[in-house]
Design a protein around this nucleic acid. Structure first.
Lengths: 206, 206
DNA sequence: AATGTCAATGATATCGTGTCAATTAAATTT
DNA sequence: AAATTTAATTGACACGATATCATTGACATT
């Protein structure tokens, strides 16, 4: 039972760290498809075979790098949602949409690589599916909560509706990632309005 | 000014036709990534270089094959929308959603290849963007029409709303393409309800 | 019949991947 | 501290795929 880090262990950790750091840099610079293992190991200053000691292949390297990004998305997905009124629900929903979009805008360069990578790799596609699943699950719970409190129309199926809502958000998110020329505020506003107008009860209506 | 098809011209057309037909078969069987030019030319019974006489590369071959599929989507996108009441709007919308999803289900094998290809190729991604654009433009016109007729809430921005609505449809479409285990009817029903409940005026409300 | 044209070809150069036997240095044992 | 074991590192290599291009030969034109 060894707990001590031998200098060999440190060396290995250091090598892996260098690879990850270089991979991050190279992926960001070249995108997923155009990045080669040779570029990464050259940047890291290690031998070609070394990359395959620590990672199964290029996809595996990228999935490792995606981890940090996923954490940030999960944080947004886990936001608490306990409104007492439809108006309160509306503002919480708007906040979550805004947070999601802002995260995407902040992480734009990496998300561009992710977009490129999702189509190219089963494994990376699955990782993204996890983010989706997390959001959809959260939204489903929120809808159920709102229906139980009689804030939302009970004729909506929570899962189907959660997916619909999440999907339109994700697609807009990709739009923000791809182009810098879209204005955030009106879109957040319209998205939240669309959703709450469909789902939530309105006293006066309008 | 030659109009006559020489036997050489016929030969060339025949060769191209064989390549397209074989490419269709091979892509369908192997997916986009796993298909190689060698497989296609072998199936077509022509020499390797011949593929590059008629097409720039593998992507170019695939784009050619996508054409037929795109036609069918454009037909659905161009459906007429002239409702006089909110109820009529609802049923027209439901019909278009159903047609879109049914087309996807009928074209499932090819759409699976398309999905795989979109991520791998700039060019193919752009082709798909054309389909999107066509639908979004049609929906935008429909929303404007409904707002002018005072059937739909005028506070919705037609373009933003059209995108939102199209995006959720497309994402569900991919879900139908990927998995055979989803039921069409409840999803079509819920999607149409979501959309019309948000956008259209309801007398009694529910 | 002679000449020109062009579809067809496959050998070739190039590039990227993943493997593995050999190397080297650290850790452990004697 | 010498010998032995262990494991991190390496780059040459085999493989597979792409795109090109000089050559070929069948067909068209004169």
């Amino acid at each position: 039972m060894k707990k001590q880090l031998t200098s060999r262990d440190k060396q290995a950790m250091e090598t892996k760290r260098k690879l990850i750091q270089s991979a991050h840099r190279v992926f960001l610079h070249n995108g997923f498809d155009k990045t080669t293992v040779s570029q990464i190991i050259k940047d890291a200053g290690v031998g070609y075979g070394t990359a395959y000691v620590y990672f199964k292949n290029k996809h595996d390297i990228f999935v490792t790098i995606m981890g940090e990004l996923m954490e940030q998305f999960f944080d947004v997905a886990k936001q608490e949602f306990r409104p007492e009124t439809a108006e309160e629900a509306h503002s919480l929903i708007e906040k979550q949409v805004r947070d999601y979009m802002n995260l995407a805008i902040n992480q734009r360069p990496m998300l561009r690589v992710v977009k490129n990578a999702i189509g190219s790799s089963e494994q990376i596609g699955e990782e993204w599916e996890n983010i989706r699943h997390e959001f959809i699950q959260g939204i489903t719970a929120d809808i159920t909560y709102s229906q139980d409190k009689n804030l939302a129309d009970a004729s909506f199926d929570p899962i189907i509706t959660a997916k619909s809502w999440y999907y339109m958000n994700e697609m807009y998110m990709w739009q923000f990632v791809e182009s810098e020329s879209f204005e955030l505020d009106p879109i957040v506003d319209q998205l939240a309005m669309f959703y709450t107008k469909a789902l939530y009860r309105h006293d006066g209506d309008g």
